[in-house]
């Protein structure tokens, strides 16, 4: 009997939690489909309305929504590819190649993880200005490729996943080290690519402070910067603001729901395994 009551209470707790978890997203949709006066009435609307396309066309009048989505896609994917290449190559060197000072250099990589990124923010901004990269997606992409955690992650993975004998035999076959990396290491670390890829992509897609600092021109706005500007209007049209927010959020949520196992394990693995 008490077991049944307990079970019931646990479910009540979990269901309320799940409801609170989804509610802001649902409410985003409710507001994205309602006119402003319905949103501002008392009590507020809690069911979707019929202004779905009207609110979204208002968004398109205010910001270049699809352009900003494309910019975010470019920034996130190019950075992710760069990070995967740079980190796996360095991870391979740190895991399998013997050279002087290797372990000390790896320690340096680890130490750089501890430094807060805001410390260098201002000089970084001026370096970008000096390079003429202000209002250029490069300003976000190139510094984004620095990922010490990625090197750490790849080194651990390659150490376990790629046997030394395999590398030795490639060497005997006269395979150069870069070819060994490309033909032997890369195919055996695809799961690590998935993990680090998702982590990097999500981080870059959601990044705000740095793009806000170096992307001042509407043409190069990422989606995060673009939807923020929706708020700046003098008269706040919440239907429009939340429409932009909702449609910018939806694609990633859908991808997450489809690949939820892979996403959850990727995003938490770094924490669990450290």
């Amino acid at each position: 009997m008490t077991k049944k009551v307990n079970k019931f209470l646990l479910y009540v707790f979990l269901v309320i939690g799940a409801f609170l978890s989804f509610f802001p997203l649902y409410w985003m949709f409710v507001m994205a489909t309602n006119p402003n006066h319905v949103i501002n009435q008392i009590p507020p609307a809690i069911v979707p309305g019929d202004k779905l396309s009207e609110n979204f066309s208002n968004v398109l009048n205010h910001i270049d929504f699809f352009g900003a989505m494309l910019n975010s896609l470019i920034v996130s994917s190019v950075t992710t590819i760069g990070v995967l290449f740079i980190c796996s190559l360095a991870g391979f060197a740190f895991a399998k190649l013997h050279f002087k000072g290797r372990d000390k250099l790896f320690l340096v990589v680890l130490v750089t993880m501890m430094i807060p990124p805001q410390l260098g923010l201002i000089p970084q901004y001026f370096i970008i200005t000096k390079l003429g990269w202000l209002n250029d997606l490069k300003a976000v992409i190139i510094p984004g490729m620095i990922n010490a955690f990625g090197i750490f992650w790849m080194r651990q993975y390659i150490k376990e996943a790629v046997p030394d004998e395999l590398i030795e035999s490639a060497k005997i076959d006269g395979c150069g080290l870069f070819r060994t990396y490309w033909n032997i290491v890369v195919p055996s670390i695809l799961p690590a690519f998935a993990t680090l890829g998702i982590l990097t992509f999500m981080f870059m897609w959601n990044d705000f402070l740095w793009p806000l600092t170096v992307l001042k021109d509407e043409e190069v706005y990422t989606i995060q910067i673009a939807i923020r500007t929706l708020q700046d209007a003098y008269v706040k049209d919440y239907g429009m603001i939340l429409s932009g927010t909702f449609w910018s959020t939806l694609p990633l949520i859908v991808v997450f729901l489809v690949f939820n196992k892979l996403f959850i394990s990727s995003l938490t693995q770094g924490a669990v395994k450290q």
Binding site: G17, A18, W27, M202, L242, S248, T249, F256, N260, F263
Partner: peptide, 22 residues
Amino acid sequence: FRVAYFVPNVTSIVAVAIVFTV
């Protein structure tokens, strides 16, 4: 439940801040 509780983390901070502002 795992998926349900994880959804907020996939939402960008900007989107979260906007929706909570409302």
